[in-house]
């Protein structure tokens, strides 16, 4: 059994976007805060801290999870993927390009979480329908877009992945 005392900080090592990363955390530190404050990965946003808004969604060992409902110590030794890992610095992946084309973001606060949910979900489903995408998006709140553009972008990214072809940039 692993025992970590309340008052002290403990070494956490994980694979962040394919690279080894590490930092120190008290047991009560949330994974969302660990990513942002200890590792400087501020792409993961924090909205509600009770699992409702979806802004903090990351992939933990591949599955989409709420980083605000996960302790940093629970991610020790595991794989965490965040929005920073979707494409090399300065580039966008197909899903991100589709978001740009379809105006699927305005302020962008909700976007990292939505991208990570869609990234996880499109992995296993080559031909999602609109209903399925809307159901997945029910786990996210966007205060700006009205979701129409997000649905269109997700459908286009799935189509592009099927065809192995990528649309124009703008």
């Amino acid at each position: 059994m692993k025992r970590l005392g309340a008052g002290s900080r403990h070494r956490i090592g994980l694979t962040l976007n394919g690279r080894e990363a590490g930092g120190w955390a008290e047991p009560r530190m949330l994974l969302s805060d660990f990513l942002r404050h200890a590792l400087g990965a501020t792409g993961t946003h924090v909205g509600c801290e009770h699992g409702v808004c979806g802004a903090c969604t990351v992939r933990l060992d591949g599955a989409p999870v709420r980083a605000c409902l996960t302790l940093a110590v629970q991610a020790d030794g595991r794989r965490v993927d965040t929005v920073e890992g979707l494409a090399p610095e300065g580039e966008l992946n197909d899903l991100q390009k589709a978001f740009r084309r379809h105006h699927a973001l305005q302020c962008g606060f909700c976007t990292p979480g939505i991208l990570m949910s869609l990234d996880a979900w499109l992995d296993g489903r080559p031909a999602p329908d609109e209903g399925e995408i809307r159901e997945l998006l029910s786990g996210h709140l966007c205060r700006c877009t009205g979701y129409g553009g997000i649905v269109a972008a997700a459908l286009e990214a799935a189509r592009a992945a099927r065809a192995g072809d990528v649309g124009e940039d703008d």
Binding site: M1, K2, R3, A6, G7, P27, L30
Partner: peptide
């Protein structure tokens, strides 16, 4: 919106979990 401090125990099996409880 942050938890108060606690000791964290990770049980590797049910026996450990109920012993800790």
């Amino acid at each position: 919106m942050k938890p108060a401090p606690f000791d964290y125990l990770r049980a590797d099996d049910e026996e450990e979990a109920v012993a800790a409880l």
